[in-house]
Write a protein that binds this DNA or RNA. Structure first.
Length: 156
DNA sequence: GTATTGATCTTCT
DNA sequence: GAAGATCAATACA
């Protein structure tokens, strides 16, 4: 279950799409409904859902999941015992799901992916994490009270 | 509890 | 040559 995301828009200095298309952010420019995976700090993979139309360059970064099934698979991939840490962060999440650059550009409405709507939830917004530009935009969204978000209690 | 640091790749200056 | 949408172990208070 997705418990935390961040928005990245076109004309957003913090977005990878801000300074034009490159080889690795190409899929951010659409079409929407696909997965964008990029390498972070040389050693991690981070997963986005592309949500802008063709040529726009907008996406939602998946920051944290609450693992509800396949726990053993995730642990096997991550070699980490604490289930709290399994998916609480973009790099962890991608590793737990086995996402790599190979999955960049794949459609989320086709196997092996499956997205389902959840019930109504309480969402709080806060400042985005780990960026230096446009950091004041409150574009981070998390489930209120969830203990699986990557940082405790985003400021509402 | 907060602070520091190594791992290591792509793009930008 | 440096910074970046990071993680986790280690060091210190």
């Amino acid at each position: 279950m997705i418990v935390e995301t961040e928005a990245y828009a076109p004309n957003d200095p913090a977005s990878h799409s801000y300074k034009g298309r490159t080889l690795s952010n190409e899929t951010m420019f659409g079409p929407p409904g696909r997965l964008h995976v990029y390498r972070s700090y040389g050693i991690h993979w981070c997963a986005n859902i592309v949500c802008g139309d063709d040529g726009v360059g907008a996406a939602v970064l998946l920051r944290a999941l609450e693992p509800t099934r396949e726990l053993e698979q995730m642990q096997a991939r991550r070699r980490l015992e604490n289930p709290r840490l399994l998916c609480s962060g973009p790099g962890r999440l991608a590793q737990a799901l086995g996402l790599t650059g190979e999955h960049d550009g794949l459609r989320l409405d086709h196997s092996p992916f499956e997205l389902s709507p959840g019930g109504p939830v309480d969402v709080v917004s806060g400042t985005r994490v780990g960026i230096t530009r446009a950091a004041e935009r409150q574009w981070r969204y998390a489930l209120s009270g969830s203990s699986f978000v990557s940082r405790p209690r985003p400021r509402a």
